[in-house]
Simulated assay, not measured.
Amino acid sequence: MDLHIAATLVPLLGWAVHGSVLAHRLASARRDPLTGLHTRAGWTARAEHCIRRHPTAAVLLVDLDHFKTLNDTHGHAAGDAALIATADRLRAWCGRHGIAGRLGGDEFVAVVRDLAAVDLGALTVALHRPLSYNGVSLPLAASVGVCRLAELPVPLLTDALAAADAAMYTAKGRGRRGARLSH
């Protein structure tokens, strides 16, 4: 009888271990390996949940200014350090008010439950703080585009991302490093 139970439990144990490994792989696929932020897929699911629950939510897109120049001048390790610092600063700014993610390259995203509850100016200051790297002070700068969901006819994440993207490129185009609200 014990042999029969063991013969039944061994495959079940194997499936449990396999399921655990797959769950871990899925969870890690939703995190950017360099910065630890949510990837696009992981962030999107959380952001959609946030905007359904919080009509005062806002979506932000952050793009590092002159990132290619930093990489070309100081090397890819310095570029990675800049990406990690940006991610850390964005994550800290979001705190318990929102969720940060990395879309790829030097583009980051965040959703906050209520833009009035956070200090957008503090984010701009943090993103423009130089980074100490191997004894050198690297200049960092970023353009930020913001879209309040309440300003959209229908509060959809895709529309908010498009509006935040347009606001970010407007800020870049005007040479204004900082935040720009969509209109």
Rank of each mutant, 00 (worst) to 15 (best):
Ser182Glu: 04
Arg31Tyr: 04
Thr124Tyr: 08
Gly98Ala: 07
Tyr133Pro: 06
Arg89Val: 06
Glu151Asp: 15
Thr170Gly: 15
Arg25Val: 11
Ala81Tyr: 05
His38Arg: 08
Met168Lys: 02
Leu3Arg: 13
Cys147Lys: 01
Asp63Gly: 05
Thr8Gly: 09
Thr39Pro: 01
Arg180Ala: 15
Val109Ile: 13
Ala58Cys: 06
Gly104Ala: 09
Ala82Gln: 05
Val21Asp: 13
Leu9Lys: 04
Arg25Phe: 11
Ala92His: 07
Ala78Ser: 12
Val154Met: 09
Trp93Gly: 00
Arg91Asn: 02
Leu26Ala: 12
Ser132Phe: 13
His54Ser: 04
Thr73Tyr: 09
Tyr169Leu: 12
Ser143Ala: 12
His18Phe: 14
Pro153His: 08
His74Arg: 13
Gly75Ile: 10
Arg102Val: 05
Ala164Asp: 01
Ala57Ser: 09
Asp63Pro: 02
Arg129Thr: 15
Leu156Asn: 10
Ala150Lys: 10
Leu103Tyr: 01
Ala87Cys: 06
Ala85His: 03
Ser132Gln: 14
Ala117Arg: 08
Met168Cys: 15
Ala160Tyr: 02
Asp80Gly: 10
Ala141Lys: 04
Val136His: 14
Ala164Glu: 03
Ala6Lys: 14
Met168His: 02
Asp119Phe: 07
Val136Asn: 09
Ala163Pro: 04
Ala82Pro: 02
Asp72Thr: 13
Ala85Val: 09
Arg174Lys: 13
Arg177Tyr: 09
Arg53Asp: 07
Pro33Ala: 15
Leu37Pro: 01
Asp72Ser: 10
Gly104Trp: 05
Arg46His: 11
Gly145Arg: 01
Gly95Trp: 00
Val10Lys: 10
Gly98Ile: 08
Ser20Ile: 10
Leu181Tyr: 12
His54Gln: 08
Leu181Glu: 06
Gly19Trp: 05
Trp15Met: 15
Ala41Lys: 03
Arg96Ser: 12
Gly105Leu: 09
Asp2Ile: 11
Val21Arg: 14
Ser182Pro: 03
Pro11His: 10
His38Cys: 08
Leu157Gln: 00
Trp15Leu: 15
Leu157Arg: 04
Phe108Glu: 01
Ile5Trp: 12
Leu161Asn: 03
Ile51Cys: 05
His18Trp: 13
Arg53Ala: 15
Thr8Arg: 15
Asp106His: 11
Arg89Gln: 06
Leu3Ser: 14
Asp119Ile: 09
Ser137Tyr: 11
Val111Tyr: 02
Arg89Thr: 07
Thr158His: 10
Pro153Lys: 06
Ala87Asp: 00
Leu61Ala: 00
Lys172Asn: 07
Ala122His: 04
Ala81Glu: 01
Gly75Phe: 07
Gly121Ser: 11
Val136Ile: 12
Asn134Glu: 15
Ala57Pro: 00
Ala166Met: 12
Ala142Thr: 08
Pro155His: 11
Ala167Ser: 03
Arg31Ala: 05
Gly105Pro: 05
Ser137Asn: 13
Ala163Gly: 03
Ala23Val: 10
Gly42Ser: 03
Cys147Met: 09
